[in-house]
Amino acid sequence: MTKETVIEVQKQFEEALRNAPDPRSLEEVRNAFLGRKGKIAGLFSLMGEIPPDIRKSVGQMLNELKENLSGQLERREAEFGSKKSAGEWVDYSLPGYVLHKGSRHPLTRAVDDMLSIFQRLGFDIAYGPEVETDWYNFESLNFPPDHPARDMQDTFYTEGGGVLRTHTSPVQTRYMSAHEPPVRIVAPGRVFRNEAISARSYCLFHQIEGLYVDKDITFSDLKGTIELFCRMYYGKDVKMKFRTSFFPFTEPSAEVDISCFLCGGKGCRVCKQSGWLEVMGCGMVDPNVLKAVNYDPEKYTGYAFGLGVERMLMMRLGINDIRILFENDVEFLRQF
């Protein structure tokens, strides 16, 4: 037995290892080389024929070979995940591997939940830019220049004459400018208000805008659609109430209140004991808005609505400070 014999066995082994595609064939390789009747055992059984003066060094060589082969084999077995051979005792009480859990942000998740309801009701999704022109953000929506209605929304102005959109409503006129009626869209997105940041208000929030313009769209359709949405989103027992309000781009305009989903309308801290929560603004598209996009108000009517996502989400999750939604604290995010 020479060093060449050892190298030859090692080569054969590595060859066999390479060509073993699965745990079962690995087991065969193990038996063929390291088993009781395997090649290594065969070599060891020849030890008696080795002259005593080199027996020790040959023994050492064989031991190294054995170690080498079982090392390689084990590594390969580990790759196949078959470290434990059949019948070996395994502590199955060990806990499962700790995997990283990902999470959707509750805001974008809430937006998606709402969008999917409107999609079921036949609305398509549309988008608009966050930096808007004064015309789309205000004038096309029937906010005349120098009108107090502009004070309803504290505006960020940007260099180059733009504004950060104060609502998603400009998507209405953008979409109508580019499409012939009928149009039926919901538009999600970020909006910005120049208000001091506090627990109750942040300089940006998310809105979802809705618009349906066609022949013979009535306030009755608006009510029906919003009622369906509220029942699908807040639960089938929710009660709704419309009250007159004012938005320059709708006439008549209304705010929608729903019975508080936290106390069932009995009165609690969140609904300020009133039993009602304000959830969205809506109304019939003002004829001036239709004119601004060259739709004929004699021919078409429509409704629009807009809802704020943060407010609703804060009530749902019991969040008192809006800023936590924008901090991205992983201990907050991983809860969802």
Partner: peptide, 15 residues
């Protein structure tokens, strides 16, 4: 305002 019935028309998506 509260006397108008709720009547969503269920047409196919227009887009």
């Amino acid at each position: 305002l509260d006397k108008i019935p709720s009547m969503a028309r269920m047409t196919l998506s227009v887009a």
